[in-house]
């Protein structure tokens, strides 16, 4: 995303806003937050603490969104409309929140 022109960034931002607004108005959106690129990494039982950004990790988690959907298929359909997927480098991971059986 480094080489994006200002106009392209604005256009992309507006797609995200519209997407989130639609998820919410359709009742799918529970919560969500973008994550700061900086942070701490704990390893070896907490003995090793390093500062982010996590250049050693290939993918940086940019944020999370909690949605509700009747099943995986429905959730997948929603995930596939995520504007971030316009970028080849963007990865979206879809997971179910675990609940008691």
């Amino acid at each position: 995303m480094k080489g994006l022109a200002p106009q392209e960034m604005q256009a992309h931002m507006e797609k995200w806003s519209a997407w989130l607004a639609e998820l919410r108005s359709d009742g799918h959106l529970e919560t969500g937050m973008p994550l700061d690129r900086n942070g701490k990494v704990l390893r070896d039982g907490g003995a090793v603490v390093t500062d982010g950004p996590f250049t050693e990790i290939k993918e940086v988690v940019g944020g999370f969104i909690v949605i509700n959907a009747v099943d995986y298929e429905a959730a997948l359909a929603l995930a596939q409309t995520c504007p971030g997927l316009e970028f080849k480098s963007f990865v979206l991971e879809l997971r179910q929140v675990q609940t008691l059986p």
Binding site: M9, Q10, M13, W16, S17, G32, M33, G62
Partner: peptide, 10 residues
């Protein structure tokens, strides 16, 4: 601007 792009939708 990238920060705004990521943050403002939320």
């Amino acid at each position: 601007m990238l920060k705004a792009m990521r943050l403002w939708p939320y």
